[in-house]
């Protein structure tokens, strides 16, 4: 008898062996690290966002952790699209799971240029990071905070490359559903929500200085999970395209909550700190256990009834 994989899911045309996806900005600086994450059990892996030119990012401290909070202002460090293409190619050849290439730029034309280069490495998806809150001094308010800018970028990238597109959205907006609707109409193949919340600030009172060198940084970790669940719920009611639910998922129970909110897959990042390198495997086995115990035969059945 064929044993059915309860965890199998689809994201557009890609089949995922399980619904856990390594988030952009976690581990995935190069092909070795992406392949390692795939070996840890991820159903798909996302590279760190790449731009037009090499960027060092902000000075340290760039990443903080305390309690249920992870804060970062890494500042989009990346080696530039030309260096990134062979890394993505090696990851696509070696990971054994779909590779999602995350990109960013300072203009719509910039996204088109980077997407054009990266598409040559044939990733399963290109994820448009339009929602980084840590570079506002240089780059202004993220594109994902405005329906028209977000839609324009998606449309222009879709006109240039055949690779399916994921739009990564910001929670720091009054109406995320309307932005999701705009990127869907512009041709996005999937949505990832949420990017980090805030930004926030932590001040060391002894030093009388903000701790992050960038002073402010995006908030993630289990503390933001209720915000992520609400965003995914609002988005999935507004659009037909699949949604990747991202934000503080540590356990199978957290993932199930995200599927109930309407997600087709979940982004995993902070769990790597709280539960270690076994996170993907642990979360998967916990989802499976929950489904068996409660009589679910596929992930889609978990979705809330209206």
């Amino acid at each position: 008898m064929l044993v059915k994989n309860l965890l199998a899911t689809r994201l557009g045309k890609s089949e995922l062996r399980n619904p856990t996806i390594l988030n952009s900005g976690y581990l995935g600086v190069n092909s070795d690290a992406l392949i390692r994450a795939a070996k840890m059990g991820a159903g798909a892996v996302t590279s760190k966002s790449c731009g037009q030119k090499p960027r060092k990012g902000h000075p340290n401290p760039t990443v903080l952790q305390f309690g249920d909070v992870i804060m970062n202002a890494v500042g989009l460090s990346n080696p530039g699209a030309d260096e990134e293409v062979p890394e993505i190619l090696r990851a696509v050849q070696g990971a054994g799971v779909p590779v999602i290439a995350s990109i960013f730029a300072e203009s719509a034309e910039g996204y088109v240029e980077v997407a054009g280069k990266i598409s040559k490495a044939r990733p399963a998806f290109i994820e448009l990071n339009m929602s980084c809150p840590n570079v506002q001094l240089e780059m202004g308010i993220p594109f994902a905070c405005d329906s028209r800018s977000a839609a324009q970028i998606v449309e222009m990238v879709k006109d240039t490359v055949k690779t399916p597109i994921i739009a990564k959205l910001s929670p720091n907006v009054p109406d995320i559903a309307s932005i999701a609707k705009s990127v869907e109409e512009a041709g996005a193949d999937a949505i990832n929500a949420i990017n980090t919340v805030g930004p926030g600030m932590v001040i060391d009172v002894e030093a009388k200085k903000p701790v992050l060198a960038n002073k402010v940084g995006g908030i993630s970790g289990p503390a933001v999970r209720p915000i992520a669940v609400r965003c995914v719920w609002e988005i999935s009611r507004a659009v037909e395209i699949p949604v990747i639910g991202t934000g503080g998922i540590l356990t199978g129970r957290d993932a199930v909550e995200m599927f109930m909110a309407g997600a087709s897959a979940v982004g995993i990042g902070s769990a790597l700190h709280y539960r270690g390198n076994e996170s993907f495997k642990l979360i998967c086995s916990e989802i499976e256990e929950f489904m068996k115990k409660n009589g679910y035969s596929k992930l889609g059945e978990l979705r809330l009834e209206e």
């Binding site: 976690y26 190069n30 760039t62």
Partner: peptide, 9 residues
């Protein structure tokens, strides 16, 4: 960068 296994640097 991070010092605790997240950023991949």
């Amino acid at each position: 960068k991070c010092g605790f296994g997240l950023c991949g640097q």
